[in-house]
Simulated scan of single mutants.
Amino acid sequence: MHYAPVIECQQVCKTFADGDSVIKAVDQLDLQVFSGEFICLYGASGSGKTTLLNMIGGLDRPCSGEVFLDKHPLSHYSDDTLTDVRLHKIGFIFQSYNLIPVFTALENVAFIMQMQGVDSKIALSKSQAILQKVGLGEMLNRRPSELSGGQQQRVAIARAIVAEPKIVLADEPTANLDSKNSEQLLELMHELNRDLGMTFIISSHDPQVIEAAERRIELADGKIIHDDSIQN
């Protein structure tokens, strides 16, 4: 049984100027996400998936409406507080990886935990273990420039989940992975979801990801047009 949502969007809007016109990336959207859900946001490019993820994670602020995390409105938080919330509660997997070029794969993954104040030896040990789980155990000391796009994506995934955040927001996490690595990633995400109660919100065009989700939410023109939640 679910109680209060861990994330709630109330009448959230986000617009962008495009020359003389205004684009509604997210349009008066309402959404409730409960702890432990495994959700896929899907829809055509430009439907609002990435913008919605960015607002849920406090990377972007809505033009109107409100996003709540654990009942707290994100608009009430300063930028510094939002940074702290992201550091301790939310794991991000970005389309562009956002890896630190001068760090090795191992250092990139350990960085979040070191920022949290975790002992360096513990952070490196956990990071090594998670990199082995995503199939990069032989590439711990390679820098991003020495890795393929798919390998960089797996480093970014490892970094997002290593500290066991409450919520993971993933923007096209399988975009640069072959079907075998995509399947392994989904198995790992399901394991974390099942064993640790980690909440996943994933945006994807990938039929493999959409099929693997327990709840599928379709967006079009910044609105939810279908939500087949199996949890009422």
Rank of each mutant, 00 (worst) to 15 (best):
H2G: 05
Y3G: 15
C9W: 00
C9L: 12
Q11L: 05
V22K: 08
A25V: 01
V26E: 00
D30G: 03
L31P: 00
Q32K: 13
F34S: 03
S35M: 12
S35A: 13
E37A: 03
F38H: 02
F38P: 04
A44L: 06
S47V: 00
K49N: 00
K49D: 01
T50R: 02
T51R: 00
G57I: 05
G57P: 02
D60N: 04
D60S: 03
P62S: 07
P62Q: 07
C63N: 15
G65N: 01
L69C: 06
H76I: 06
D80W: 02
L82T: 07
T83C: 09
V85Q: 02
R86M: 04
R86N: 05
H88F: 15
H88E: 11
K89S: 12
K89H: 14
F92K: 00
F92G: 01
Q95A: 10
Y97I: 05
N98W: 04
L99Y: 07
P101D: 14
F103E: 11
E107A: 13
N108Y: 05
V109H: 08
F111K: 04
I112S: 12
I112R: 14
Q114T: 12
Q114P: 03
V118R: 10
V118D: 11
D119Y: 06
S125E: 14
K126R: 15
S127M: 08
K133V: 11
V134P: 04
L136S: 14
G137E: 10
L140S: 12
R143H: 14
Q151K: 08
Q153G: 12
V155G: 07
A158L: 12
E164F: 06
P165L: 08
I167D: 04
L169E: 06
L169I: 07
A170Q: 10
P173F: 15
N176W: 14
L177Q: 10
D178S: 09
K180M: 15
L188A: 05
H190Y: 09
G197W: 09
M198E: 10
S204V: 06
V209R: 01
E211Q: 15
E211F: 11
E214W: 00
R215W: 04
R216A: 13
E218V: 00
D221G: 09
G222S: 01
G222L: 01
G222Q: 03
I224A: 04
I224W: 01
D227F: 06
Q231C: 10
Q231S: 12
